[in-house]
Write a protein that binds this DNA or RNA. Structure first.
Length: 279
DNA sequence: CTAGCTTCCTGATAGC
DNA sequence: TGCTATCAGGAAGCTA
């Protein structure tokens, strides 16, 4: 489920609850969620680590340890990360429980089990995780129209597919891609090589605005997060495009449509988001 | 290069 | 009510 704004929200809530704590033990209930190293080595290396900070890159969460080791987590579709009291009800599909030095527990829950953990030693390559293939952060100053144009202007892929390419700009998923294209008045199937310089500039600004808006509207109190078990993302009712097929466009009132691009559903307004004449 | 498909899973929902 | 089919916000890997 989570895209960059949701992962950032989780990071902001969880970091103050884990920073400075030591992982006392690791109970691994589902070995499948460990990508690297082998599950027994993962458990051995993780136990006793002192967490210094929690970072984010795209949709990845990075736990930094005092030892210099790092634990990386990708929640994929249904991963949930919680810090709970010991007596908090154990959710179905809990795959990892790590008691912390302050008496609370770090828990990982994942219905579909697509999420993955990696434990990286300082000398190990980020290529093991794929962090080296990530593009720039949507909120970085490097995100400009010129940057997007440089990467996509000679390509024929639909702009929707381009936004989902984590190796150019990281952290955008299917929901925010639809929201961004709606806000930028761009048809999701528009081929990248049809876009003007003005359109690339507008898109860069819109990506930043929509991602920043997502983080703002997602923000919630830790209590609220725990009560929702880390799976209720508050801005869903505020979305303007995703899931709006068949509903009137909030700008022009015309009926929103839905197409499939690269196997992903895409909602758009057929009037506000008309295809352009190639430049 | 690009489109399209499969795989990894469970659960919600729609249709019969 | 109970059955089956379809789909879900991610991403890699494969074929054509």
């Amino acid at each position: 489920m989570p895209e960059l704004p949701e992962v950032e929200t989780i990071r902001r809530i969880v970091e103050p609850q884990v920073a400075g704590r030591t992982i006392r033990a690791v109970r691994l209930l589902q070995e499948q969620v460990i990508a690297h190293p082998a599950p027994n080595a993962f458990v051995r290396f993780l136990s006793g680590q002192k967490i210094t900070s929690l970072d984010r890159r795209g949709k990845f969460l990075l736990f930094h340890f005092a030892s210099g080791d790092r634990m990386v987590l990708h929640l994929r579709m249904t991963g949930q990360l919680l810090v709970t009291p010991t007596d908090f009800p154990m959710e179905k599909h809990t795959h990892l429980v790590a008691p912390l030095s302050d008496g609370n527990e770090l828990r990982y829950i994942d219905v579909r089990r697509f999420g993955r953990f990696w434990l990286l030693r300082p000398e190990e390559s980020e290529a093991i995780v794929g962090l080296d293939r990530l593009g720039i952060e949507p909120l970085s100053v490097d995100l400009t129209g010129a940057y997007l144009k440089e990467h996509f202007e000679r390509r024929a892929i639909p702009i929707k597919a381009a936004l989902l390419d984590q190796s150019v700009v990281c952290g955008i998923g299917n929901i925010y891609a639809d929201e961004i294209l709606y806000a930028a008045y761009l048809h999701p199937e528009e081929p990248c090589n049809h876009l003007s310089t003005r359109a690339w500039n507008r898109l860069a600004v819109t990506i930043r605005d929509i991602i920043a808006w997502g983080i703002e509207t997602d923000s919630m109190m830790p209590e609220e997060y725990l009560a929702g078990k880390g799976k209720e993302y508050r801005n869903t009712p505020d979305l303007r495009a995703y899931g709006h097929e068949g509903k009137p466009c909030l700008r022009c009132g015309r009926t929103m449509k839905r197409v499939t691009i690269g196997g992903r559903s895409s909602c758009y307004c057929p009037y506000c988001q008309r295809k352009k004449r190639p430049v």
